[in-house]
């Protein structure tokens, strides 16, 4: 089956044309702190993009296991930014309305910046737990740790430049 060329081009546009120069050496996978949990590996993910295999590239746990540590990016011998490929795929996935707990977390994060200009962890967590109730135990444990130390912000601080922030997100998103 021929690859999805527009998908490949979109990845290259977002992550950089140097992705084409990938030699599949696997340095990225060998550097990744969550490589043992990834399937496909980050090396294979890049191959899927170059082959235009859109479905396989977008629907996997690999995208959401990336911690953005950038070790792949500083080590790639071809100057490719594998983390930027992951970001590009997340971005494409979010645009196509991909559902799931991880996509939801990113969506809520950006929505909160759009609405308030800043992140209030309590409100973000509360919203996330509605779509991922399994996270409630870990959130409670964290809450019990942070609350007595006064480290949970109970009020949401809104910045004055919210309209500008909203415009930044909405206008630049289209690019």
């Amino acid at each position: 089956m021929p690859g999805d060329e527009p998908f490949k081009q979109e990845v290259l546009r977002l992550a950089g044309p140097e992705v084409l120069t990938c030699i599949q050496c696997g340095t990225c996978s060998a550097s990744c702190p969550t490589a043992n949990l990834m399937n496909p590996s980050i090396r294979r993910l890049i191959k899927l993009c170059l082959e235009g295999k859109k479905e396989e590239a977008l629907h996997n746990e690999t995208l959401w296991l990336c911690t953005s540590c950038l070790l792949c990016t500083v080590r790639c011998p071809r100057g490719i930014r594998p983390k930027a490929v992951v970001s590009a795929l997340k971005d494409i996935a979010e645009r196509t309305g991909l559902q799931g707990k991880d996509a939801a977390y990113e969506k809520f994060f950006l929505e909160q910046i759009k609405d308030y200009g800043r992140i209030a962890e309590l409100a973000l967590t509360a919203k996330f737990l509605l779509v991922f109730p399994q996270g409630v135990v870990q959130s409670m444990q964290m809450g019990l740790e942070l609350l007595p130390r006064g480290k949970i912000g109970l009020e949401i601080e809104k910045i004055k430049g919210r309209d500008e922030v909203k415009r930044i997100i909405e206008e630049l998103w289209k690019e």
Binding site: L14, T67, S68, A84, S87, A88, K90, D91, E94, Y105, E106, F109, L110, Q112, I113, G117, R118, I119, I159, K160, G161, E164, V165, I168, I169, L172, W173, E175
Partner: peptide, 22 residues
């Protein structure tokens, strides 16, 4: 009147750049 930098959760590079630029 600073805003959030997007942390590691804004995948769109240009949006992240805009948030930092403000």
């Amino acid at each position: 009147d600073w805003n959030c930098c997007g942390a590691t959760h804004v995948s769109h590079e240009l949006v992240a750049t805009g948030l930092a630029a403000r």
